[in-house]
Design a protein around this nucleic acid. Structure first.
Length: 701
DNA sequence: GAGCACTGC
């Protein structure tokens, strides 16, 4: 029996379709199989003990390795033990949408209930829960949003935070919040005193039951969580994985790409059947290794050429991603060249061999320059462990680490928590909205640097979300915290409302929140560029995005099909393909547009358009994004006004060749150079006119 | 002349 689909796309039980000839018999056997499978999981034997521990302890840390069954089974144990009485729910959070969905489906099946009844999931844009839902799987970000509306999370008797070891920003903030909520719910009503903040408010005059917290982690190190929760009890649940042989090189490899290639062919020619998974750092590397594999295959005798290289990374359109899942033709061995996406987000069946060069591309943030960077850095021990585990899902496997064992010992235990390497403005705005005012003194698991906090506070103040005393500004700060957007985009919507171009800004912001709306395949670069030119505005990327979105809308209007979501998707996909637009991104932008439009309408804004007056819209962009402006230098490079950095226009910008004098931009990121992305041409005088609190002199720099 | 991975009632 394959191990559980954790974020995987396939569930073993779903594949067992009932036999139409004898539905009762096969349904019975499916139920039997499910029961057998559940009983065989390592966690099944400790059900009684786990429930006792939950009853005894308000906080419990569960360390469970892959395949223990903790994510699917523990919520069912809790349900059976009566934790969902009186309408209370058990909430289970996941860092990823796909995991919330697949696990909920699986558990509904195991409970033999319809999804959305006793068992359901809720993620952004897709909520299957109902009033009868008792086991609710969701993303951690969504629970954070829920806390803004119900600060005591009063509908939950137990909250399970799964995959806590990944230490995403959402998980870290959620854990801090849950710690506070739990204390608030323990205190008798009215004893919180007059100084209470809003996390503690709201339970006046009403009885609220205690909240149980369960932190689940696959970490080697549960101490961090245990210490954070005041020495909370940690229990270990055995995993169930097939053994994976770890092999190291004798000497350091100077060229890990070449070492990976050599290893691929060594496995292909010498090892037994089974597919190969290679972890590389990015699209470029993946595509060049793909070419090199193809080339070297040509040098092999005909009968040894049955090796099929496939690629997978997040920017790849879904259809092409799916190719990695299809079984190889008979006699062929697949070699999957993947980024980190294959570490946790997707599970490809059939992998027996993993090649791990030991590197990862990671984002980091420099608060003083307001600049992000993407650097190739050594992976952590936890990551390399996760990677090798990918070889042991279906049978014994092998993992080839392309460095000596002594190098492994030097790796960091775990990846630096994301909260220590990202822009904090959104996190801080959320905390402020939850009534937490002392950010510097806030009880983070890992405290971000003081500089990073100060920078974010300053940004929020400049955006008008905070007062000079760093209190939430009324009403702007509250409005901004309610929108599921970066604070700077929320601010843009509020300004656009005042400047009568809210319709345009809603679309623009929706597109800016997605990862690249254009699809730009290397092999059809000329065609893709021609298509981009068709949409391009000489005034910049924002106006270009506006016309892409509007044209897709018009196309849909013209084709006015009666209703069905599926049909709309199909038509949009075709349009996207013809126009080199990434359909996943466009769909996401359309969903976001709908959601944020609803939000601003609820705030009482009227969505009005500036029609053809793009000047007014660009002025609004300047007023919104004044913190990120750049001016051309004599030598043709640009200087970012805020940080003074010398920057370059990113080649994907429609302004790449036009070299305007002054622009605002949304993103400053260092990769091979310091690039600015998503730009619009502005008149530099607008900055002093529209953001006088920031640009005091008449001539910016 | 170039894009690690996630996420938000």
């Amino acid at each position: 029996m394959p191990s559980m689909a954790q974020g995987g796309l396939n569930s073993s039980v779903q594949n067992n379709k009932p036999n139409p000839k004898s539905p009762t018999a096969s349904l019975f056997s499916i139920r039997q199989k499910i029961a057998q499978h559940r009983k065989s999981l390592p966690i099944a034997s400790v059900e009684k003990r786990l429930i006792e521990e939950v009853q005894k302890n308000d906080i419990l840390i569960i360390v469970g390795e892959t395949g223990s069954g903790k994510t699917t089974q523990l919520p069912q144990f809790l349900y059976n033990a009566g934790f969902c009485q009186e309408g209370k729910m058990v909430g289970i959070t996941q860092p990823r949408r796909i995991a919330a969905v697949t696990v909920a489906k699986r558990v509904a099946e195991e409970c033999d209930v319809e999804l959305g009844q006793r068992v359901g999931y809720s993620i952004r844009f897709d909520d299957t829960t109902s009033t009868s839902t008792r086991l609710k799987y969701m993303t951690d970000g969504l629970l954070l949003r829920e806390a803004l509306l119900d600060p005591h999370l009063s509908r939950y008797s137990v909250i399970i935070v799964d995959e806590a070891h990944e230490r995403t920003v959402h998980t870290d903030v959620l854990l801090a919040l849950l710690k506070k909520v739990q204390r608030a719910r323990l205190k008798p009503v009215g004893e919180n005193g007059p100084q209470q903040n809003s996390v503690l408010r709201g339970c006046q005059g009403r009885k609220i039951s205690p909240l149980k917290l369960i932190i689940m982690s696959a970490s080697l190190d549960a101490r961090v969580f245990s210490e954070y929760f005041g020495g909370a009890k940690a229990v270990h649940v055995e995993g169930r994985q097939h053994p994976v042989d770890i092999l190291y090189t004798a000497h350091p490899e100077s060229d890990y790409i070449d070492a990976a290639l050599v290893t691929i062919f060594q496995i292909h020619l010498e090892e037994k059947v089974g597919d190969i998974l290679v972890f590389l750092t990015g699209q470029d590397e993946i595509e060049s290794v793909e070419r090199l594999v193809q080339e070297r295959l040509q040098h092999l005798p005909e009968d040894k050429r049955k090796l099929l290289p496939l690629t997978i990374f997040s920017a790849l359109p879904s259809e092409q991603q799916m190719q990695a899942f299809a079984p190889a033709p008979t006699g062929f061995r697949k070699v999957i060249l993947a980024t980190n996406i294959a570490e946790t987000s997707i599970t490809i069946p059939g992998i027996r061999y993993v090649i791990d060069p030991g590197f990862v591309k990671a984002r980091s943030y420099n608060p003083s320059k307001g600049m992000e960077s993407l650097d190739v850095v050594p992976a952590s021990k936890a990551q390399t462990l996760q990677r090798s585990g990918r070889a042991g899902r279906e049978g014994p496997g092998k993992c080839f680490r392309l460095y000596p064992e002594r190098e492994f010992e030097k790796l960091e235990d775990s990846t630096k928590p994301e909260i220590k390497r990202c822009n904090l403005s959104n996190v801080i705005l959320q905390l402020k909205a939850l009534g937490i005012d002392d950010i510097i003194g806030f009880d983070f698991i890992d405290k971000p640097s003081r500089g990073s906090i100060v920078k974010a506070l300053e940004e929020l103040r400049l955006l008008g979300a905070l007062t000079d005393e760093c209190k939430l500004e009324n009403p702007v700060g509250y409005q901004m915290s309610r929108l599921p957007l970066d604070p700077v985009y929320s601010r843009a919507l509020i300004l656009a409302n005042q400047m009568n171009c809210l319709e345009e800004m809603l679309i623009t912001v929706a597109v800016l929140t997605v990862e690249s709306i254009f699809y730009d395949p290397r092999e059809k670069r000329e065609e893709a560029r021609a298509s981009r030119n068709h949409f391009a505005s000489v005034e910049g990327d924002h106006l270009t995005y506006l016309s892409v979105y509007r044209e897709s809308d018009e196309f849909l209007e013209k084709r006015k099909v009666a209703g069905s979501e599926n049909k709309i998707d199909k038509i949009m996909k075709k349009w996207c393909k013809d126009n080199f637009v990434n359909s996943r991104s466009l769909k996401h932008a359309r969903d976001t547009y709908r959601q944020i439009r609803e939000h601003v309408e609820q705030m009482g804004f009227t969505v009005s358009s500036c029609g053809n007056d793009m000047l007014e819209f660009r002025r609004c962009l300047a007023a919104s994004f004044f913190l990120k402006a750049a001016q051309r230098q004599l030598d043709g490079t640009y200087r970012a006004l805020e940080s003074g950095e010398i920057v370059h226009i990113h080649p994907t910008s429609v302004l790449f060749r036009s070299k305007p004098e002054c622009v605002i931009f949304n993103e400053l990121m260092q990769t091979s150079k310091k690039y600015i992305k998503n730009l619009t041409i502005i008149d530099p005088l607008w900055l002093t006119e529209l953001a006088p609190h920031h640009y005091k002199s008449a001539e910016p720099v």
